[in-house]
């Protein structure tokens, strides 16, 4: 019986360690707490009980030698018939009142449909929200602190995240101003005058699933999205050149006002951000 004595010792040790660890937990808590020590003590306090119980079962209890018969799952045909009869008898009584059955069904159905209406209260209608941002003609571009941006400050290779003045933080309006330097801008047809003094503006929302397109590589004129590595060619209308994004970043038409600030000439010409089924609607 040496094994059983040894087994008992191990079980006792496990429970004992648990008691000590729990006491330790209380002390650590009173002393101000410490996540790593709490974790270690919890490991011992809970693990001691767990190990003790499992060892106990394995060493001293009958394991794996009990046999039980399975009762067949299907009922006998007779039982089934009686259940069916019970239901059928009741159903017959109900079905006799045919008009009432129909009216009850109509009442429940109407209630069900009426109950769907509050779902509409959950949110605004998409309406035009996905098609417009806060940019308007004449609105100045401000940086994250709300300061209007001077065109002269966007030197070659500079990138600034801007918002329409008065709407700092508006998620759908976040725009990147990129300084291309003189003579580098190669406009898409019809956008010849959208990048005054080599400052070009693109929506910062990735057209894939909407992460902010944060990384700019001035040497290659590429914008990278950190989420799924789409790359956009800034010189070619922010056309996607790699990764899962399927559409260019919309371009914000820009101009420079008399005081030298960057100003929008209007909203983006198309919806910004990820696609949706009727994006082509106008």
């Amino acid at each position: 019986m040496s094994t059983s004595t040894k087994g008992a010792g191990a079980v006792a040790a496990a429970f004992g360690a648990s008691v000590l660890a729990s006491a330790g937990l209380a002390i650590v808590y009173i002393a101000g707490g410490s996540p790593p020590i709490e974790g270690a003590l919890l490991l011992v306090a809970l693990g001691g009980i767990g190990a003790g119980l499992v060892l106990w079962a394995k060493r001293f209890l009958p394991v794996g030698d009990d046999v039980q018969e399975r009762e067949p799952l299907p009922s006998t045909p007779d039982e089934r018939a009686r259940a069916s009869d019970s239901f059928g008898a009741g159903a017959d009584l109900v079905a006799r009142r045919r008009l009432l059955v129909r009216l009850a069904a109509a009442a429940l159905g109407a209630l069900g449909i009426a109950a769907l209406f509050p779902i509409r209260s959950l949110g605004r209608a998409p309406g035009g929200a996905l098609f417009h941002t806060r940019w308007r003609a004449g609105v100045r571009a401000v940086d994250a602190s709300g300061t209007p941006v001077q065109a002269a400050s966007i030197t070659t290779g500079t990138v600034v995240t801007v918002f329409p003045e008065g709407h700092v933080g508006a998620a759908d309006s976040q725009t990147l101003l990129i300084g291309l330097g003189p003579g580098v801008y190669r406009p898409v047809a019809g956008r010849e005058d959208w990048a005054p003094e080599g400052v070009v503006g693109y929506s910062k929302i990735c057209t894939h699933v909407g992460c902010p397109v944060g990384l700019y590589q001035p040497s290659e004129h590429l914008l990278f999205c950190p989420c799924h590595q789409s790359a956009f060619d800034v010189l070619a209308g922010a056309r996607p050149v790699a990764g899962p994004a399927a559409r260019p970043l919309p371009q914000l038409p820009l101009t420079i006002d008399a005081a030298g600030y960057v100003v929008a000439r209007g909203d983006f010409p198309e919806p910004v951000g990820p696609g949706f089924w009727d994006r082509g609607r106008d």
């Binding site: 974790g39 490991l43 693990g47 767990g50 499992v54 079962a57």
Partner: peptide, 20 residues
């Protein structure tokens, strides 16, 4: 005993991870 023991072992590992 085995199953309750397993509960404590699972809880031990999870809280241990949670602290450490």
């Amino acid at each position: 005993l085995k199953s309750v023991g397993l509960f404590f072992l699972v809880a031990a590992v999870l809280t241990g991870l949670g602290g450490l």
